[in-house]
Design a protein around this nucleic acid. Structure first.
Lengths: 339, 339
DNA sequence: TTGTACGCGTTATCAA
DNA sequence: TTGATAACGCGTACAA
């Protein structure tokens, strides 16, 4: 019961035509009270549920794809969930997929989403540089909102002001007297990393800090990477006195590295994390962080996409940039050594 | 290009019939080398990608639904991701949905998944007791694997030995001399909470601990709840000397409560968390926890479901129970007060 | 081996 | 207002 029942069965039981049944189901105005009643009765009696597949064959699928690196990163989960809520209220369903920062997987997922005929896509890419990826993105047959990425530029996008975020962090540390400040962030072929590095260099120049390229670690956003890089940085003959983490998932790895070196925060080393987390807010001392609102980011992406999907006419790409906020807690102090 | 091209276009360009094109695409054996070549050429030339919707109309959708409380809880994300990986390798795609522990939402999602014709479902329910929910679950038209739930009993299931987990935690605390041990866990209409409470009472009886029902807080798995309950427990005239958290997402809330009371761990209060996390492993001191393997849980669920979906004949329900492990770290010590 | 025609469950168009 | 019928894109019996 309810498992294999089609609109035909409904029409038959209600003794009306297919068309009438369909009209009742879709709430068309032009339908007699008598027929409507009979059809509705048949529907509940049979437990009829329209086959979404067949509906999609005709019109839109009302499915939206989302491409993130890893749903396991709590910040991304918050982003996805916020987008999902807004989209759900608009009658769309989210197809959540994870690239794991792997090119092959990203290509596969992109193809999958076009085969599945999603009406739109919220995406972050593992590389803005890669030409295969770029080609597929450009050819994507549905509206797309980029999340912290900038290619193709004809797409709507939602970004974070990472460059200014790094400035906030740097200013704070420089205020304590730090001169050797390290930055650990992701690969240069994505926007956030590039912006952070640019910001870092800008302010270093302004404040006449010597730029030691060795202190800029642009590798990946994986937590393990943060562990290795932190450990290596702190094992140098002349280690940094402060580390800025440029990535939402880096704090745990970095803390692990610091614990491995048996260093105290902030006495031996100052740390500024990126984006809030239980670890950041509840550690003793709690971590000073550059924070931005993943929930708002998710909502904004969803709204941008929704507008685009429902637009009758085309309009220029819209770009939303969210500001960051420096949340000062207890992980920064005076530099442990004089230079 | 590639956006609106159907198998018809391929057939036309290759100058073959529809059937032949289809056969080539689906790798049928009975097809001439000549035709195969022409079709394949046409496919790449046109950038043809089969419409998954239309394919699904004929056979299976190769989609699987998953129903969790909240993808934002890292442990659940790990579970989902592990299931996703295994299913993906088998050619299935996961439709991830979140109930938020709300009945209305759960009903809506369940209906959504049957309308979308998923081939299977991995589900946890917000209540095993509720009769509306029970009816819908029982009528679900595809194989279903229950995750840490036991209804309907005819479904395959994957569970955690929470009862024994609580015993491990209790034994550990009793070993330190604790007598007033609190348990914070979720609502009683789900299996894990019930099992934990049973385990708690069993061992309390064995060890001749007075059972104070006031120390058993069975409310919800939300972090906020853990905060309130911890705070209230510690504000009592005769507070517990130890708290066991029975839920993967409770530690952060509880820690917040303890910090609000300005208590030190483990000097003033001993804590045992549930399931690992950055917060649990990297705090100073790190938290002693009852751990179980969400990744393995995800894999097992996926495997159970896959077997069921691909089975030619029916077979009895299978139930897998994973053991827990007590990871002793630094959040437990001697009770702060004698009774 | 190849081609034709039908069915999957809808919605939408067009007569009646 | 209602009913019949043509799509949607694909897989597959069945006929050639």
């Amino acid at each position: 019961l309810g498992t294999k029942v089609t609109i035909r069965d409904v029409a038959r039981l209600a003794e009306v035509s297919l068309g009438s049944a369909s009209r009742v189901i879709n709430g068309s105005a032009n339908v007699g009270a008598d027929i409507r009643e009979r059809v509705e009765k048949a529907i509940t009696e049979l437990g009829f549920k329209p086959n979404a597949l067949a509906q999609s064959m005709r019109g839109a699928t009302r499915m939206v794809g989302i491409l993130v690196r890893d749903i396991t990163v709590p910040a991304f989960a918050v982003f996805v969930r916020a987008a999902q809520e807004l989209l759900h209220d608009a009658g769309y369903t989210l197809l959540i997929t994870c690239t794991e920062d792997r090119k092959d997987r990203e290509i596969e997922l992109l193809n999958f989403l076009v085969r599945r005929k999603v009406d739109g896509l919220i995406a972050t890419t593992s590389s803005e540089e890669d030409s295969d990826l770029a080609r597929i993105r450009s050819a994507f047959p549905a509206p797309m909102v980029l999340f912290d990425r900038e290619f193709p530029s004809t797409s709507d996008s939602v970004r974070v002001a990472h460059r200014r975020g790094i400035r906030q962090a740097m200013e704070h540390l420089i205020g304590f007297g730090h001169k050797r400040i390290a930055l650990i962030t992701g690969s240069k072929n994505v926007l956030p990393s590039r912006e952070r590095i640019i910001g870092y260099k800008e302010i270093a120049k302004e404040r006449h800090l010597p730029i030691d390229d060795n202190l800029i670690r642009s590798v990946s956003f994986e937590a393990d990477t943060a562990f290795f890089e932190t450990f290596k940085l702190l094992s140098q003959p002349s280690p940094p006195t402060a580390i800025i983490l440029g990535g939402a998932n880096l704090l745990a790895g970095s803390v692990k590295g610091i614990q491995a070196k048996k260093l105290r925060i902030p006495d031996d080393i100052s740390i500024i994390g990126a984006s809030d987390s239980d670890l950041a807010s509840l550690s003793q001392p709690p971590f000073t962080i550059v924070r931005w609102d993943y929930k708002e980011l998710g909502r904004a992406s969803a709204q941008l996409l929704r507008d685009r999907m429902e637009a009758k006419t085309s309009y220029p790409a819209r770009h939303i940039t969210l500001e960051t906020e420096l949340v000062i807690r207890g992980s920064c102090g005076l530099p442990s050594r004089k230079e």
